[in-house]
Design a protein around this nucleic acid. Sequence first.
RNA 1: GGGUGCGUCGUAUAGCGGCAAUUACUCGUGGCUGUAAACCACGCGGCCUUUGGCCUUCGGGGGUUCGAGUCCCUCCGCACCCA
Length: 314
Amino acid sequence: MANSKVLIIVGPTASGKTALSLLLAKKYNGEIVSADSRQIYCEMNIGTAKATLQQQKVIKHHLIDIKNPNQNYSVGQFKKDAIAAVNDITSRSRLPIVVGGTAQYIYALVDNWQIPAVRADKKLRAKIERNIAEQGLPAVYKKLLDLDPEAAYVVDPKNSRRVVRALEVAITTGQPFTAQRRAGEPLFDFLLIGLRGTPETLKARITRRTRRMITAGLVKEVKGLLKKYGRQQKVFDTIGYREIIQHLNGELTLNQAIQKIVINTRRFARRQMQWFKRDEQIHWVNASVSPIVPKLLTDWLGHGWRPLPGRRGI
RNA sequence: GGGUGCGUCGUAUAGCGGCAAUUACUCGUGGCUGUAAACCACGCGGCCUUUGGCCUUCGGGGGUUCGAGUCCCUCCGCACCCA
């Protein structure tokens, strides 16, 4: 299984990952596995910049629209689902192409994170959070260190979410959290391609894409979601959705909301790059028309794989 | 024309005469193992021999004072009120 080839395409939002993945999937007989924490959700289409239904008809997509907005999802679940999808695609002699901007998901797969097999426990988390509110975060952090001294080196004492999770794992399993989170042997033969552009290009693309989303009916999409699921869903804390919700609440004009979406998307893109820029195995490409890509793929795939005829200009 | 108020870091703000000057956001750097489009930390006038030192700052100019972002005068700009 470790010999199975898996192509990974990463990059910040609006860098052109979708377009590139569609081209490569066509040319190399591939199927796409989305590694995107928001495209997981049904009915969030415009704001998450999903491939269109038309495109999904041509190229099979996995891990898109697998949850409703009122359901939770997580890295651990993603890792399982992604492995299953990759194996399924490989078994049909097609090339799995994992595409996405959720770096945590990407690296859970690529670095084979051994994620503690403890699901989010709402009640336990609520209880720990109550303790934090009553006794303060430092006191709760001390409790964690009692159960898991090694956590001092790994868990950020100021980040209550991380403390809550570490405690949740330690309490549930009776084992230290830090003993359970390791990286494993590589699962597949990965090739990582990273898409990036100059900050100016990216900014222009983001601005253009945001306008296109509005034209495509983002406000209507958000209205429909709110009507169906209420306002409280965690997923609605998503760029493009939360600003439109603020607009619908009367807190922002539509233009202000659009501006905020653009700004927040740019910040998001920068944060995404935090992960990717320190990964030395990524082959960086500046635009989806780069001639380097076919060469990389040919070298990596070897002779077993023949590009399908046609399709120039990748 | 008369009166009042206001001009402080990219923006918005704090600043009873001892201040390189508050807070928030933006911005920058970094972290992240089942919430990750989330969450968290640090930095943000300049220079240096950087647990410290030096220089330049709070619309412009002048004054009072050992000492002024803070008080006084004046000019410029903005806002509002009366004409």
